[in-house]
Design a binder for these strands. Structure first.
Length: 229
DNA sequence: TCCCATCGTAGGTGGATTGC
DNA sequence: GCAATCCACCTACGATGGGA
């Protein structure tokens, strides 16, 4: 039986890492931030994590009081995992970590899943740019459905359909990244058929201005300069 | 579907030893 | 005293098969 590792350090950071610092633990929390998920949903979100590792992490996070397991009502009756209120307090930490990590070089060929993309939107959201903006959006990324609400300089996101949205955007993660983080015009993406908008097109066209674009860290910039011809 | 058990492997850790 | 090296042990992880 493996012994649970601890940093044996009273510092709050060390104690936090004792709870969520093991490999995959924070990514499990990322997967649960936008709504409850079943074990199989988590496997789809983290395809390179093995079953027993996921199982171990969920048990540890549950024992730590960061995640709870709940049975859905009939007719589904499946078990789902979700953050406890204390676990939910990790969200601003995850968003700050995501903002910091966005400056690291991209991992070649690594796909971004829909949950990570939506949390990425929350990470890079610019409250000051959204002052006075009020919009409700439905977002369909492949099979995944999310609702986004921007109001009072805040962006709220959750899994599920939006009620009476101003617009519904249907696309894939890569195209959404091009729209939001690389400034590819909405019209170009719509013309290519990679993105469709039902409802208020102008509201969607205004979106990219509400998000910061990832900028490389100084070290990465220097490396790129050295490597470029 | 959701784990659990077992086995093999790679990589990490810590202690002992050696050389400067 | 300190750094480098070696080596045994430990741990996380993946693969696989099976149970409720």
């Amino acid at each position: 039986m493996p012994v649970k590792r601890t940093y044996d350090d009273s510092c709050g950071i060390a104690r936090a890492l004792d709870l969520v610092g093991e490999r995959w633990a924070l990514l499990v929390m990322r997967e649960l931030m936008l709504g409850p998920k079943r074990f199989s949903d988590l496997q789809r979100g983290l395809p390179t994590a093995s079953q027993n590792v996921l199982s171990h992490r969920l048990r540890e996070l549950t024992a730590a009081g960061v995640v709870r397991r709940r049975k859905l009502g009939a007719p589904v009756g499946a078990w789902v995992y979700e953050p406890t209120p204390w676990g939910r307090e990790l969200e601003p930490v995850l968003l700050a970590l995501g903002r910091w990590g966005s400056r690291a070089p991209m991992v070649a060929d690594a796909e971004l899943n829909a949950d990570a993309m939506v949390l990425g939107l929350k990470s890079m959201f610019l409250p000051e740019a959204a002052a006075g903006v009020r919009v409700s959006l439905g977002l369909r990324l492949g099979d995944e459905v999310f609702r986004l609400t921007i109001a009072d300089g805040r962006l709220e996101a959750a899994r599920g359909d939006a009620e009476r949205p101003d617009a519904v955007v249907a696309t894939d993660v890569a195209t959404l990244r091009e729209l939001i983080f690389r400034g590819r015009p909405t019209a170009t993406l719509r013309a290519s058929g990679r993105l469709t908008v039902e409802g208020d097109v102008e509201a969607v066209e205004r979106l990219p201005a509400l998000f910061a674009r990832p900028r490389p860290a100084p070290e990465a910039e220097a490396d790129e300069a050295r490597l470029s011809p």
